[in-house]
Design a protein around this nucleic acid. Structure first.
Lengths: 224, 224
DNA sequence: GCATATAGTCACCGCACGGTGACAGTGGCG
DNA sequence: CGCCACTGTCACCGTGCGGTGACTATATGC
């Protein structure tokens, strides 16, 4: 009763076939990746679950994409996962007109908003901490280019403390990403409600307060 | 040949038993948790792998601890996973003697060193981003108490910008944790080699440069 | 009209996982 | 000595995973 493997080839059911449309099926699969990712995160992102969500046989994932890594690559390439420079610094033309502190402040605040609008990106950021894969690789490539553009656009090189400034900007960006990633699961960080708009307004306020102090050229007065 | 489930009860092998020492076995299991965690991270931390590493039957994990969550709880309670306040601020007695900026700087720099000395803690931090479990819960409880003590020890309440200051300190701590977690897998962050001692010296330099500027009471001069 | 390429379906494999029940060796206590 | 609680051993189950081979249905070109 358990070693019946010779009955293959007997078509018992007629099993009406779906429409023959490869590109539509590919689109369904790509859409399923997004749905599973948004609903369950990366832990459940496997071939079986994607196929289930798409209402499609999993073998098609192998046939059309080659496997899970290639599917994720394809998914990553068609998404607006990382904010463009234009989204963060709208007035590229008038860069020189504004003082550096306004530019930097605007950049950091917009960066927060831009990422908060992209829950999938945050999910990817969280995933690549523990299990980097083809999708995080795609995001990595984008970010590399992004980093260069940012450095050029903000152009802190003419500041006399460009090195220290860049370190601290990088640290703040790292902190923002950390809080965004943690906010998926944890409500508070040092008393700040990081799942809430009000919490992020507080953080933005802190950044707005900080930037001018980092950019000040004056002597440091002892404030104790 | 496949439905042979009635032959249980026939002792074929003599199978020399190991020493009858429960506490030693428990210790082996707890040690195996640490080894697996250090070697493969949380992805491979299951009952099977732990038992394999400990050279012990997995059923003993259930008998002695109750299951994986309880085992992780037990593991978490016997570790020095989070730096104590004393480790970060050695001269508690002479707190009032030093200016706030020196205290805060020392605290942040020591915090970096303290976490970098604890790769297992960093592993737990990384894990709890994607899959919080009993172990991260234990760490959470410790950190809650820690946060209160830190706030009391640093006592920024007398500063006129205590709110903004605390936000930025929290942000820097978040950024440090993010970089530590990322450094497990990625070598660079914005050009800083975060797997390297020299990279962290650069970060510390940036923090040392930043703290006095945040604590300065003076007017903010426009540095553009 | 008919062969062929291709879209879609199905059953199956091997594997690792978490978890459990039954059994065997061992030491202490009456 | 004999009971018995306890430590350790082993075989097994159900499940879900990634992955594949072989099949059927359909459209297109000749």
């Amino acid at each position: 009763m358990s070693t019946d493997k010779q009955n293959a080839g007997k078509p018992k059911t007629v099993a009406a076939h779906r429409a023959r449309d490869r590109t539509a099926t590919e689109e369904k699969i790509l859409g399923a990746v997004e749905k599973v990712l948004a609903r369950d995160g990366f832990a459940s992102l496997g071939v079986n679950e994607i196929a289930r969500q798409a209402g499609v046989d999993k073998v098609l994932i192998y046939r059309y994409f080659g496997g899970l890594p290639e599917l994720l690559r394809a998914f990553g390439k068609r998404g607006n996962f990382w904010p463009s420079i234009e989204e963060l610094l709208p007035d590229t033309e008038t860069l020189r007109d504004k003082p550096a502190k306004e530019l930097l402040t605007a950049f950091l605040l917009r960066f927060i908003d831009a990422l908060r609008k992209r829950p999938l990106t945050i999910e990817i950021l969280a995933m690549e901490i523990d299990a980097p894969n083809a999708l995080s690789q795609v995001l990595d490539e984008v970010r590399e280019e992004w980093g260069l553009q940012v450095a050029r656009a903000l152009g802190g090189e003419d500041h006399r403390n460009a090195l220290e400034l860049n370190i601290n900007i990088s640290l703040v960006i790292a902190g923002v990403q950390h809080l965004l990633v943690r906010a998926r699961r944890t409500a508070m960080w040092s008393g700040i409600p990081i799942q809430d708009d009000r919490g992020w307004e507080v953080i933005k306020h802190g950044i707005t307060w900080m930037v001018p102090r980092l950019l000040a050229n004056g002597e440091v007065k002892d404030g104790d």
